[in-house]
């Protein structure tokens, strides 16, 4: 589902010259995997997700996601890829104020070539358990509900890969658990998920955990037992 080879992403950092945030990352993710990526702050986790999701094209190396080779794609092709093949979930939800839950979920349709419609948005909202709150504005929803709307939005165009950047970072324990449960269930339905996280319980929900360190990915030295939320 996802392959990277010699993926390198650097930034010019004034006095220190060029800093390689990702330095020859090789990654293989099979369809249906639930991968957690951990690493200290600033290690490049978000950068990796942005590259995989076609939001950042300033990398070198080979990246193929859901059958699309991202290396060298232009802006419009990348936009189409983001629209159709991947879904993003962010730490701070990023819903558009002033649009209802339903309209937020249907936002990808605005930039789509196909004519996806409201029914699809309702379906996606129902999938995250918010079928009753379609007309609420983001300001009228709780944090957990907002994140579920954001997840519904990422599901709207039926992507093959979900890319989540600290999806539970702004949620309290209980709502975080609900969201993690939702990810598990989506994963069981066949969706490939990559989640960047500091959260042990999200990490425990994953089928594999990798650690980003010094620009490289390595297996996590201290894997938690699978499904171990209750074990601590």
């Amino acid at each position: 589902m996802i392959t990277t080879e010699a993926l390198t992403r650097g930034y010019d950092d004034g006095a220190r010259g060029r800093v390689r945030v990702l330095d020859g990352v090789s990654l293989q993710v099979a369809a249906g995997e639930f991968l957690a990526v951990v690493g200290r702050s600033g290690s490049g986790k978000s950068t990796l997700l942005h590259v995989l999701g076609g939001l950042d094209s300033g990398f070198t190396g080979e990246v193929t996601v859901a059958g699309t080779r991202l290396s060298g794609l232009g802006d419009r092709a990348l936009a189409k890829f983001r629209n159709e093949s991947v879904g993003f979930v962010f730490q701070s939800f990023h819903l558009i104020q002033g649009l209802s839950a339903l309209e937020n979920v249907a936002l990808p349709a605005a930039f789509a070539a196909n004519d996806a419609d409201e029914a699809r948005a309702k379906e996606a909202l129902a999938r995250v358990g918010l079928g009753e709150k379609t007309e609420r504005l983001p300001s009228q929803l709780s944090g957990g509900e907002r994140q579920r709307v954001a997840i519904a939005r990422s599901l709207f165009n039926k992507p093959r890969v979900l890319l989540c950047d600290e999806p539970t970072g702004n949620l309290d324990l209980q709502t975080a658990d609900e969201v993690i449960g939702l990810f598990k269930s989506l994963n069981q339905d066949g969706l490939t998920i990559i989640a960047v996280t500091h959260e042990d319980r999200l990490r425990a929900a994953a089928s594999r955990v990798l650690m980003l360190n010094d620009g490289r990915l390595a297996p996590h030295p201290d894997p938690l037992p699978r499904g171990g939320e209750g074990d601590r």
């Binding site: 939001l55 802006d75 419009r76 936009a79 983001r82 558009i96 930039f111 789509a112």
Partner: peptide, 16 residues
């Protein structure tokens, strides 16, 4: 800026 970023993330091109 954020909102425009979200639109880009869900499939807006620079031209959009």
């Amino acid at each position: 800026e954020r909102e425009l970023g979200v639109m880009r993330a869900v499939g807006a091109s620079q031209r959009d």
